[in-house]
Design a protein around this nucleic acid. Structure first.
Length: 806
RNA sequence: GCCUGGGUGGUGAAAUGGUAGACACGCGAGACUUAAAAUCUUGUGGCCGCAAGGCUAUGAGGGUUCAAUUCCCUCCCCAGGCACCA
């Protein structure tokens, strides 16, 4: 019996699959063969990779192996499976590399994509890489720009001032990642917040729609995280006048009922009113505080544990409810980005306000008594919190000082990036006509080839005269282009709509074609994308839906997150130098063993810490399985050639098929593999008949595609089918017949006071009475029962016989 | 800090209210071999016991239940995310 030669076998079948175009789907789902057209479509998608300079790492394999297993399983279940893969090609790392080495990002990206494609092919998956989807290609970003224009037309893209991390040393904007403890990671200069006019997508208009996850088969935790991220809260927005002036400001509060307990107000240090209201005596202190806050990140500012800090402005606000004058402070725990950037502080009933009030010796008034009843609150006295909220909102509306509102934590999506390696924003600024969108016929706005990447205080695109200077599409006068590029999340929020139509460069949006495959039936990627990528993609999808560009209201019907593979408990990264390369293992054991080992390590959704200690177990399993398949039918035990082939194995085979199906369905690939190991341990003893082999090869196929294909070919003659030479992936998924599960006896556990005291083998359908008396007859049990009085008897058919003794 | 997960033998893990540790790795013993590797057989949570059997055990503490890894409460630890890494 020849040993299994993984390298040879895997190469052989990868070539055959490629030649036969086994995994090509007919994107039109019309012109192809009839059989395929009649199958239901199944769009099986993995989050596309960023082409980094590292080789394909374990994390990629941990994702692409199981995704492919799932796709093959669905294919065998009778679906027309579309499983494309492309590249999220724009991004910061290639640009940083260019700044360091002078190598153009396009060159780096090209090289990395080519290398990754080779490595992905070595997995031997059903991935279609021939669609060549790359977000940095003009054929692709033309559409990213087109999408920007659609949002612009709908009023969903707008400009406003927003802060960026600015390094005065490098004269450049820094990503959060490049800020290390408040300083630039490159030159160590203290980073400051600087305001720039930037583009936003109005995702907040869709907050309510995004809160609705109806019909989505998503993990509860992801839905919950998105809900909290959107952060809907009901409350009121109302005005405070500034004493002695005609100025006022608005605050948002979820507890407008506590307004009589407000003893001071706090403005965010960036609030536009601060400069206007600060009195002469306080000016120095306020200025100094504002400067200090500029160096702090939002996370540092909002830490509940930190020492609260703030400065009095010298101004007073008038409480609209009782006309009392209360001091106005500024403090960094109030953010311009949430609510109105101003709060009324009620130290009696808010923890942060209380801490602040204690530190600065501000008065505290209690307005809610235990039992949620209002006191010290004039016309709200005696009402419950809920009643008081309604009452005060009605009062605000009556007096015209405020209204009930819904506030969201979600902020509009800042899409401007002062970077080179991204899709240019298709806007032109004209002295006469102002802000003018690039006409659709002029797309794409090509990204100029530059050679000097060193930051000079502006966006890199501003350095290209040829790019910047253009003419106004409206009046024909000289005009300038927008020099910022788009956040790469814009590119990655719609790529799944491009795959179905990617063979066609396309001058028009092809709704019909996209609709043929959307929505994505299964989307698999890391949980770190729960709140950003997955929310942005849903947002754009809903905009497209409203624009009539697609028929599905949601992009991803089912979502699964794979876990993360760590090394010694830490995320693998190049900077830590702890990246494990799969190549050596694939070389040694083959793709099937490596991907099965990753799946066998633990539950797919939980990930785990990498070590290679157990891989030999999977390698042994593959050898044993291969040996079992090659054994003459029922070779062991002298039953070869008799009608007893694989005697006694039917139950085990059908149980294994049921177990594997159930485990794959739940993506518990580790359990599926364990069930097949168990079956193999028995099968090697007793031998399998051809029908049993056929079933077991088919359920192994999604997990170890190359070996299963080889085994399928080897057993072709004994199966005696008329479909010689067909792939196991064109066969159907076997269905376990429960008639085979039946066994003569099952083991019942006998418990006394909940503790296991013995077992007894009985027929599965044994009645309660018979089971109890059988249990009583056991010496060890009767010993326990005679220790007291039996006050309760428990019977779970086929499982438990229990007694409660007192 | 806030949001979301997770914590079970020496190790990866299984069991989602019903015999805790399936399946593997590792380790011990044995077979085969001149020998080793490979392979096969067998044992393997801890403690007591020749055995039968018993006690103990799923991060810590408490609760609900005849019965809890599983449900509830409090705490500890680890991981992911926190809006310019993708």
């Amino acid at each position: 019996m020849p040993d299994y030669n993984a390298r040879e076998v895997e190469k052989k079948w990868q070539d055959v699959w490629r030649e036969r175009k086994l995994y090509k789907v007919d994107l039109e789902r019309v012109s192809g063969n009839r059989a395929e057209k009649e199958k239901p479509k199944y769009y099986n998608l993995t989050m596309f990779p960023y082409p980094s300079g590292d080789r394909l790492h374990i994390g990629h394999w941990y994702n692409y192996g199981p995704v492919d297993t799932w796709g093959r399983y669905m294919r065998m279940k009778g679906f027309d499976v579309f499983q494309p893969m492309g590249f999220d090609a724009f991004g910061l790392p290639a640009e940083n590399y260019a700044i360091k080495t002078g190598v153009h990002p396009a060159e780096t990206t090209r090289k990395n994509i080519d290398k990754m494609k080779e490595q992905i092919a070595a997995i031997g998956g059903m991935y279609d890489l021939d669609l060549n989807l790359e977000t940095a290609a003009p054929e692709y970003y033309r559409w990213t720009q087109w999408i920007f224009l659609q949002l612009y037309k709908k009023g969903l893209a707008y400009r406003k001032e927003a802060p960026v991390n600015w390094c005065p040393g490098c004269m450049t904007v820094l990503a959060n990642e490049q800020v290390d403890g408040g300083a630039c990671e490159r030159c160590k200069t203290v980073v400051v917040q600087k305001n720039l006019k930037q583009w936003f997508f109005k995702i907040t208009d869709y907050a309510e729609k995004l809160l609705d996850h109806t019909g989505l088969d998503w993990p509860d935790r992801t839905i919950l995280m998105q809900k909290h991220w959107i952060g809907k809260s009901e409350g009121a927005q109302f005005k405070f006048k500034i004493a002695g002036t005609d100025l006022d400001f608005e605050v948002f509060s979820t507890r407008p009922d506590t307004i009589f307990g407000a003893t001071y107000c706090v403005l965010s240090p960036e609030h536009p009113l601060v400069d206007k209201v600060t009195t002469g005596g306080q000016r120095e202190l306020v200025k100094a505080y504002q400067a200090q806050v500029k160096t702090k990140s939002e996370m540092e500012r909002t830490e509940l544990n930190k020492d609260k800090s703030g400065v009095f402005t010298g101004a007073f606000a008038v409480n609209p409810a009782n006309g009392k004058e209360i001091p106005i402070w500024i403090a960094d725990y109030v953010l311009m980005s949430y609510g109105t950037g101003a709060i009324m502080a009620v130290p009696g009933h808010d923890e942060r306000d209380a801490e602040f009030a204690k530190k600065y010796e501000l008065p505290v008034i209690c307005v809610v008594e235990p039992g949620d009843t209002l006191v010290n609150s004039d016309f709200l006295d005696g009402l419950t919190v809920d009643e008081a909220k309604k009452r005060i909102i009605a009062w605000f509306e009556e007096k015209g000082v405020g209204k009930g509102t819904t506030n969201y934590r979600l902020r509009d999506w800042l899409i401007s990036r002062q970077r080179y390696w991204g899709a240019p924003i298709p806007i032109i600024y004209c002295m006469k006509c102002g802000e003018v969108p690039v006409p659709e016929k002029d797309l794409p706005v090509r990204h100029p080839h530059i050679t000097d990447y060193i930051p000079k205080g502006t966006s890199p695109l501003a350095g290209s005269e040829e790019f910047v200077n253009t003419v106004c599409p409206v009046c024909g006068d000289k005009a300038k282009r927008e020099v910022d590029t788009m956040d790469t999340f814009v590119c990655s929020s719609w790529y799944f709509l491009r795959y179905p139509d990617s063979e066609n460069a396309g001058k028009a949006w092809n709704k019909e074609k996209v609709d043929k495959w959307m929505p994505v039936d299964m989307y698999i990627g890391g949980p770190e994308h729960a709140c950003m990528h997955l929310l942005y993609a849903r947002f754009l999808h809903k905009v497209f839906f409203d624009l009539g560009l697609i028929s599905s209201p949601e992009p991803f019907k089912r979502l699964v997150h794979q876990g993360m593979i760590t090394k010694d408990g830490a995320k693998m990264s190049k900077s830590k130098g702890n990246v494990v390369s799969p190549d050596d293992f694939v070389e040694k054991y083959g793709s099937d063993v490596f991907r099965m080992y990753l799946m066998f390590m633990g539950p797919f959704t939980e990930g785990g810490d990498w070590n290679d200690r157990g891989i030999t177990g999977v390698a042994r399993f593959v050898e044993r399985f291969y040996r079992m398949i090659q054994m003459p039918n029922g070779a062991d035990g002298g039953v070869a050639g008799s009608s007893e082939l694989g005697a006694g194995m039917d139950t085990l085979v059908h149980q294994a098929v049921a177990k594997v199906t159930d485990a794959i369905e739940k993506m518990n690939f580790n359990v599926a593999i364990a069930a097949l190991m168990e079956l193999t341990n028995e099968g090697l003893q007793k031998g399998l008949n051809p029908e049993q082999k056929s079933m077991i090869i088919r359920v192994l196929a999604p997990l170890a595609p190359h070996m299963a294909e080889e085994a399928w070919a080897l057993t072709e003659a004994e199966r005696g089918t008329s479909q010689n030479g067909t792939s196991v992936f064109d066969s159907t998924w076997p269905v376990a017949n429960p008639a085979f599960f039946k066994t003569e006896t099952v083991t019942f556990a006998i418990q006394v006071n909940g503790k296991l005291r013995g077992t007894v083998a009985l027929a599965p359908e044994t009645s309660k009475e018979d089971a109890l008396s059988s249990a009583r007859a056991i010496g060890n049990i009767s010993k326990y029962l005679s220790a007291g009085e039996v006050i309760k008897e428990i019977f779970v058919p086929g499982k438990i016989i229990g007694f409660v003794v007192k």
